[in-house]
């Protein structure tokens, strides 16, 4: 490492702080940046700067946005009586792509996890409760089906229940468009457990 110029070492370090990137990959990326033409490299630097200066959290739903409130919260056509709670902004993107949901969102910023030191105060739970005015009729819990996501859903349900608001969560079942033989056993077992009456 000693042989490398200080500036390059700094870049390698910066890259290795990114998720899923180890020392080796960081070094490769840094050398790649070095070989890029100047305009491309500057564009990358500007893009990073731009993201950090212009993107912030919506003060209502905590989705990432360039304008506050975000376009979804400002949209007069969205159904204000329904709030869909998700763990991260990426989840909003996925649900929006379906064009099925016309209500509002709320981004928690993660899930409860004592093992990672994440408690209710680290998530935007108070902010969610503050949004639950009489206008809100339903809260949809669209958290990840992980242990932590499940516990967070139970936690939120316990807080919201006294407010007499309908609480729902995403159904779990077999994926569409494929035959049962391609569904993994675990998903199928769960689907059998949570079957619907016709």
């Amino acid at each position: 490492m000693k042989a490398l110029p200080e500036a390059l070492q700094q870049l390698i370090q910066a890259f290795s702080r990114l998720p899923g990137i180890g020392k080796k990959t960081a070094t490769r990326l840094a050398f790649h940046v070095l070989k890029m033409d100047k305009e491309q490299a500057m564009e990358l630097a500007r893009a990073i700067q731009h993201v950090k200066t212009n993107i912030r959290f919506c003060s209502i739903c905590y989705n990432i946005t360039e304008t506050d409130p975000c376009p979804i919260c400002r949209d007069p056509l969205r159904d204000k009586s329904t709030i869909c709670v998700v763990e991260s902004s990426e989840d909003i993107l996925l649900i929006e792509r379906t064009n099925e949901y016309k209500g509002l969102y709320h981004v928690l910023g993660g899930a409860l996890s004592p093992l990672d030191g994440i408690g209710p105060e680290d998530l935007r739970i108070k902010e969610l409760l503050n949004r639950l005015t009489p206008e809100v009729k339903e809260v949809i819990l669209a958290l990840n089906p992980s242990t932590e996501g499940e516990a967070t859903a139970i936690y939120l349900a316990r807080l919201i229940k006294p407010l007499n608001i309908k609480i729902t969560r995403l159904a779990r079942g077999v994926p569409l468009g494929s035959s049962l033989e391609f569904v993994d056993e675990l998903t199928l077992s769960r689907a059998i457990q949570s079957r619907d009456e016709l």
Binding site: L112, P114, G119, P120, T147, E150, A151, T152, I154, Y155, R158, L159
Partner: peptide, 9 residues
């Protein structure tokens, strides 16, 4: 409440 949630799970 959090304790009760983990216990419910």
């Amino acid at each position: 409440t959090q304790l009760a949630s983990w216990e419910a799970l």
